[in-house]
């Protein structure tokens, strides 16, 4: 027990050190970095929102199209950045593996942590800016909104633990990452609610924790204006299975890794 606590304390130190290192290398020199995380989704939402309102006119009085687009796009950006940065993450950081207490999992954990904090800040920022123009509601239930985010982040983290070790073994995987992100759009509830789909399709999509997470986020935000569909059991079950596979893969790859 004492050893476990000591180990946890060391890992906490490592995570703290890696986080500040990561923030320094990425945002230290030019502070535009963190700002850009927040501005980019807003820009995208503005452009798509404008295009949409011209093409289709006001679709739904209760859900604003700007708010709908931005709440879909920001979690997707988080997913894209996390996946993109997880590929080859072990080799990219291998100089730090010279220190025994630095584990490969720390790299993944820190990346996902920073991306998720950035994404949630962007969410708040976009919400505040849009609310200023009357285009964004005050969250109906902040607890549900946070639960949705938590499910989304947990699943992305567990996928990253699979992606990172696999990308070390196969170069193809790294190349396939962008493609798989675009393919995942329909399965992640970015631009649609599950209630707009047929019951059969909806049933299948419930296997994707991304959909459950997104539905909950939107329900927490828009409240009774939307009808959410989610399956907490499947969302956590799928995430935990992925995480277990990921942990095993990380361990195996680390054992045979050449550190330069």
């Amino acid at each position: 027990m004492a050893r476990l606590r000591e180990g946890l304390r060391v890992q906490l130190n490592v995570i703290q050190a890696l986080t500040s290192r990561e923030l320094m290398t990425r945002f230290g020199r030019e502070n535009i970095g963190f700002l850009w995380i927040m501005v980019e989704p807003l820009l995208f939402a503005a452009l798509v929102g404008i295009a949409w309102s011209f093409i289709r006119g006001p679709v739904n009085d209760e859900i604003n199209v700007f708010a709908f687009v931005v709440t879909g796009y920001i979690p997707l950006t988080f997913l894209r950045h996390s996946f993109g940065r997880s590929a080859k993450i072990f080799v990219a950081n291998s100089a730090l593996l010279y220190h025994r207490q630095v584990k490969v999992l720390d790299f993944i954990f820190v990346r996902v942590l920073i991306e998720s904090v950035g994404a949630m800040m962007a969410y708040m920022f976009a919400g505040i800016v849009l609310a200023f123009f009357g285009l964004f509601p005050f969250p109906a239930d902040i607890g549900v909104l946070v639960l949705g985010w938590a499910i989304y982040i947990f699943f992305v983290l567990s996928l990253c633990t699979i992606l990172a070790p696999v990308s070390e073994v196969s170069d193809v995987v790294e190349k396939l990452v962008p493609v798989s992100i675009y393919v995942s759009i329909p399965f992640s509830g970015v631009f649609n609610m599950a209630s707009w789909l047929s019951p059969e399709l909806r049933e299948i999509l419930m296997w994707s924790p991304l959909v459950s997470g997104m539905e909950l986020m939107r329900y927490g935000l828009f409240g009774s204006a939307v009808t959410p569909y989610y399956d907490l059991g499947k969302a956590f079950g799928v995430s935990i299975v992925c995480l277990l596979i990921g942990l095993i893969l990380c361990r195996r790859i680390r054992r045979t890794m050449t550190v330069t």
Binding site: V10, N13, V14, A17, R21, S94, Y98, H99, V102
Partner: peptide
Amino acid sequence: WPLGFSGGFQGSLTGYDNARFISRI
């Protein structure tokens, strides 16, 4: 850690930043 020609440092960080990183871990 093995003190050699490579490894142990983050090249893009300064000497001070590396020292801070190592003092933390």
